[in-house]
Nucleic acid binder design. Structure first.
Length: 157
DNA sequence: GCCAACGTTGGC
DNA sequence: GCCAACGTTGGC
């Protein structure tokens, strides 16, 4: 059963173009250091799809689609004292943080901005649109997924 | 740069 | 277990 997700990244740190430029268009999604987001990561499976969301930028919004291409495994950057998201409390024998590998699937032809998403009551239940939401990994329902894909495809012509 | 919202930490 | 202080996120 394929599931749908939304993954946030600041494009100044790692953008969808960066992912697209990686070998095999694939990279591990490391650095998640929030338990709720971690739990969502651990629920992922190969074949799941996710929206790539650009945050903290001029035009925050969904910029494309990526695919989960690994099962969840320990985030090894947590063990590296030189890594940006080093966590001395994550023990390799009992890892605290996890990640998956993702592959670029497609760019939307335009950014589906946060402002636009907020204007559609059909998807008002998305965690992304809740007051004070900061979660960087969140589930998307099948209905929400197809609704947003339709928005993106509407001006494909 | 501002600020609201949230999660985590640590004293008690 | 409570809660104040602090750090981070992220839109504007």
């Amino acid at each position: 059963m394929t599931a749908y997700w939304l993954l946030k990244s600041e494009p100044s740190a790692f953008s969808i173009a960066d992912l697209k430029a990686r070998p095999q268009r694939t990279e591990h999604w490391d650095g998640v250091r929030n338990y709720q987001a971690r739990n969502h990561l651990r629920a992922m499976h190969v074949g799941d799809r996710a929206f790539f969301y650009h945050s903290s930028c001029a035009e925050p919004g969904i910029v494309g689609v990526i695919r989960v291409v690994s099962e969840p495994y320990p985030d090894f950057t947590a063990f590296d004292p030189h890594a940006a998201h080093y966590d001395p409390k994550s023990d390799p024998a009992q890892p605290r943080w996890f990640m998956v590998d993702v592959r670029h699937e497609k760019d939307f032809h335009r950014v589906i901005t946060l402002a636009e998403l907020k204007s559609h009551r059909e998807i008002a239940g998305m965690p992304l649109l809740q007051r004070g939401s900061r979660l960087s990994v969140m589930p998307v329902s099948e209905r929400q997924w197809h609704y947003i894909c339709a928005l993106a495809d509407a001006d494909d012509s």
